[in-house]
Design a protein around this nucleic acid. Structure first.
Lengths: 175, 175
DNA sequence: CTTGAAATACTACTACG
DNA sequence: CGTAGTAGTATTTCAAG
């Protein structure tokens, strides 16, 4: 009955400089909503409301609040890579020649334009960047490698890890 | 005017054993739909129809066909990791002790249960697996590392690459 | 095989208690 | 938060290209 109070009445810990875990600050219903929308957001609001045992307007208000709060970053359609003819995934470790701000900036600008680049991250350790690239097959990757990757600015070394099997690839957040 | 014919009249190349590119087999409108839905799928069908200059029913039929064909794998809400208190991303390279089917199977089963594991892939090269894990901060990752990662079955070595900056992280497919 | 116009059923959304 | 009402949308039907 006062489960919703958790949202409206922050605890002492929640008001500290570093909130412990924003997701834990949500009540059971909000978490159920997020679980559902992360799995299938094409569900209608009335159906969602029924699932979480709430009236439609109340449910809609919660969804809108979750969006406005920024917790829900967006609602998107996911395309199946295989069906789209890009069944091959390659993870690439990149080492730059020089570790200067200009070198990093130049590389990042170019990396984002690489066809099929899904992720690009600056990392600690023996690599400067990790990128993941979706492409069709080894032929198309070889072409991409020879024509684009090897010409990325400031690159000393590129190491490719071909993905043989995708065990897990999710956008879902643990709740 | 016969742009739509591409869908209904496969070319000789498309009937070959390996279709060249399923996305190229789509007409301009289907691609516009996919572009929009990959960016924001919370748009109403009438608004989408207006954007692609089609009547609402025709637009809806196309969307449904794209879903039934499997090209659209699903529509989901994306949660902002930072807002969810999991602003830290770590990429992990794993080397197994033995390269036996049992060893791989056992590891994969356990790896999927690791809290915050977003991706897990078998790769070629100096690692057996790459995993990406979302967690809150270095403290929580350290805990995860000590309590879960080090106890994954059959692991010889784990190398962690902390993500310092996420340059690009997209679910969008190039169209 | 696809489209668009009209009609119906359902849903989102608002106002209010 | 829920109920009731209104506005707008999804969905079906059907005629036409």
């Amino acid at each position: 009955m006062n489960a919703t109070k958790i949202r409206s009445t922050p605890t002492a810990a929640a008001t500290a400089t570093v909130p412990p875990d924003p997701l834990q600050a949500l009540d059971r219903i909000d978490r159920a909503i997020l679980r559902q929308l992360q799995t299938d957001a094409s569900i209608s609001n009335v159906a969602l409301a029924a699932k979480v045992k709430l009236s439609a307007p109340a449910c809609l208000r919660r969804v809108e609040r979750l969006k406005e709060s920024g917790l829900i970053r967006g609602v998107v359609a996911l395309i199946d890579p295989k069906a789209a003819g890009a069944g091959m995934l390659v993870i690439i470790g990149v080492v730059l020649d020089r570790s200067t701000p200009e070198s990093f900036a130049e590389f990042e600008k170019a990396a984002q334009k690489v066809a099929g680049c899904m992720e690009c991250h600056v990392v600690t350790g023996e690599f400067d960047y990790f990128m993941t690239i979706r492409t069709r097959d080894s032929d198309s990757f070889n072409r991409l490698h020879a024509e684009q990757l090897l010409y990325l600015p400031g690159v000393r070394q590129i190491r490719s890890f071909m993905v043989l099997k995708e065990i897990l690839s999710t956008t879902k957040f643990p709740l």
